[in-house]
Amino acid sequence: MNDVMTQNMLVFAGLLFSAGFVGFLTRRSLILMFLSLEMMLAGVSINLIAFARHYGNFQGQVLAIMVLTIAACEAAIALALVVSLYRKKATLDIKAWDELSETLVPKEVEAPISMSTTEQVFPSLTPSGLDPLQDPVPSEFMANLKVGETIGNPVVNEKKAEVSNNA
C-alpha cells in the first residue's frame, strides 16, 4: 500500500536527480556542471517535501530550507572558484584541468569540431611578417633564424648575391 501522489513525486524527484547527474557527467563547461548540481539538489528538495506531506509534519520542509541554504552557499563558493579558475586559464573547459587527474590516464585527442552561428569563413591569406624588400633585415629577426634559412623574396636575394659577387 503506497500513497500514489508521494510515489509520483519520488519518481519525478528521481528523474530530476538523474537528469542533473547526466548533465554533470556530460557537460564540459564549468558553469553548466554547477548548474547540474543545483538541479540534483532541486530533486532532493522535492523528495523532502513529498515526505513532509506524506508524514504530515514540517520536518521535511525544514530540511528542504536547509538544503536551499547550503545550495546558496555552494553557488557562491562555486562561482568564486570558477572565476578564479577562469583567471588562470581563460577557459571554462573542464578538460583544461585534466592535469589534476591521474597521469597514467592516456590523453584524449580532441577532434576538431565546429558548429557556430556567428563564425564566418574568411579566405586564407599568405602569412604576413617581414617586408621581403626591407633592407637591411632587423637584427632581432635574423637572430631567430635557423642556420641556412633565408628570408625574403628569393628573386631579390639572388639579385643581391649577384651584386655582391660583381663587387
Binding site: 528523474l15 547527474f21 557527467l25 556530460t26 557537460r27 577557459t91 578538460k95 569540431i113 557556430s116
Partner: peptide
C-alpha cells in the same frame, strides 16, 4: 561564440545509460 567545450559532450551515451539504470 560557441566553444569546443560547449558543443562536445563527454560521452553522452555512457552517461545516458548510467542515468537510465539509475532511473
Amino acid at each position: 561564440d560557441l566553444r569546443v567545450y560547449d558543443i562536445k559532450l563527454t560521452n553522452p551515451c555512457l552517461a545516458g545509460a548510467i542515468g537510465t539504470v539509475m532511473m
